[in-house]
Simulated scan of single mutants.
Amino acid sequence: MALDVCSQDLLRVLKPSMPLERIHLDSYSVPVTDGAVELISQQYHKTLSNFVLMRDDAGFPDLSVNRNEDPLVLLAWRCVHLAVLIIHGYTVWSHNLVAISRLRGSNLKVLAVSEESIDFDPDQSVFIEGDPVHNLVKEVSLGLGRVWHPSLDTSVVLSEPTQHFHREMQSFSEGI
């Protein structure tokens, strides 16, 4: 399923009776909300394997704002079959990225996060020595059990078939 809809419409479409395995949320115009990600992680915790969250806009919404738990971390924790997590255009806090890598470990076959999506908590930098990006790469790599790096080029975040699908969805959405 791939949608470019507002979260209210998305909440009406997503039903527990639909065994969703893959979802590509490309919020070209309206950002996906934390509530939508929360609903997905609750309803599809037994079936969801691929979660793609994209946004092509200058602003990088923070899904964890005003929350104790980050909805992306909860998604990684709840969705026992999650193997692909791709994020671009939303803020992902470095400590949450480490938590996701530790929760899913080597079962997370693809973790693609654009470098510009990653943010660092200024309060945590007091406790970390050296370059925060280097420390993040090291911690996420340890969590996944393999070498990991943030995606420097947005086009690398998506595989070619997914990029094609992404372009098709954007052109389809422009006509609506």
Rank of each mutant, 00 (worst) to 15 (best):
L108M: 12
P19V: 02
M1C: 03
I86N: 02
T91K: 09
V84Y: 12
S94I: 03
P61Y: 04
D62S: 12
V140A: 05
S17H: 03
D121A: 05
V65Y: 15
A112K: 10
I86K: 14
P71Q: 01
S141I: 03
T154Y: 09
I118N: 07
E38K: 14
I87A: 05
E174F: 03
S159H: 05
S29Y: 15
V147P: 00
Q163A: 06
I128L: 13
D119A: 10
D57P: 00
H134C: 09
V73M: 08
D4A: 10
T33R: 03
L82I: 02
E160F: 00
E116R: 13
T47N: 11
K15I: 14
A112V: 02
L158G: 09
Q42H: 07
T33F: 04
E38G: 13
L74P: 02
L53H: 09
L39P: 00
H45S: 14
L97F: 04
L14C: 13
D121I: 00
D34M: 02
I100Y: 05
D26H: 14
L10F: 13
L85G: 03
V113M: 11
F165A: 07
S49F: 13
V65N: 15
G89V: 06
L3A: 05
D9C: 07
A76K: 01
E129I: 14
I128R: 10
L152D: 08
Q43K: 14
Q42A: 06
R67H: 02
V157L: 04
M1D: 04
V65K: 15
I100T: 02
I118F: 12
N66A: 15
D131E: 05
H166K: 04
H88N: 05
